[in-house]
């Protein structure tokens, strides 16, 4: 008789335990969904940064096409231990720093983006006697969680030196 009395109410206890487990699952799933949202945002935002950085490499290439002789002189000076002229032509030139670019504000938060030229250099291949212009630009912003989100774009253009007669 004692045993049967103990078994009374077992269904309730089992249901209670099962309900608690189900609730815990729901809570865990909900928090997982919440955690995945910022990652989706980051992926979308990196696309924006990529396009902006590429846009700045266009400007750097235009400057090089307009003033190749001055760039080569700056490059030569840098090779001879005077890098300030090259820096003045490239990374320190005001046109290569765009702060608070707001036209492509994040769709998710209104944080402006900063774009900056990272480097402009001549790459040479002695074996093939070829030259290339290497341009690197970056775009970055600080997201709503305080993280620095950055993306770099690289452009490589083959060069051919010709003497204007």
């Amino acid at each position: 008789m004692k045993n049967t009395d103990n078994r009374r109410g077992m269904a309730l206890i089992l249901a209670l335990v099962f309900a608690v487990v189900l609730l815990q699952m729901a809570i865990a799933y909900s928090s997982m969904t919440r955690a995945s949202k910022p990652q989706t945002i980051q992926i979308d935002e990196r696309i924006k940064l990529d396009y902006l950085a590429h846009g700045l490499t266009e400007l750097a290439l235009l400057k090089f096409q307009l003033y190749p002789a001055d760039f080569y002189a700056c490059w030569e000076a840098a090779k001879k231990g005077q890098p300030q002229y090259l820096r003045s032509f490239t990374i320190n030139a005001p046109e290569f720093t765009i702060n608070n670019f707001s036209d492509s504000n994040s769709s998710f938060n209104a944080v402006p983006i900063n774009i900056q030229l990272a480097s402009m250099a001549i790459l040479t291949n002695d074996k093939w006697k070829t030259e290339a212009l290497f341009i690197q630009a970056g775009a970055a912003y600080t997201d709503q969680y305080g993280r620095n989100i950055a993306k770099e774009a690289v452009r490589l253009v083959s060069l051919e030196r010709k003497l204007n007669k």
């Binding site: 008789m1 049967t4 009395d5 269904a11 249901a15 099962f18 309900a19 189900l22 729901a26």
Partner: peptide, 30 residues
């Protein structure tokens, strides 16, 4: 005296049903 009474079963089902409500809610949100 052995087995489950109708009241027990009803209570257990009510409990389980109430546990499923937030789960269905989460699924809907998802």
């Amino acid at each position: 005296s052995t087995g489950m009474t109708l009241t027990e079963v009803m209570l257990a089902m009510a409990l389980l049903a109430s546990a499923f409500i937030p789960i269905i809610g989460v699924m809907g949100t998802s």
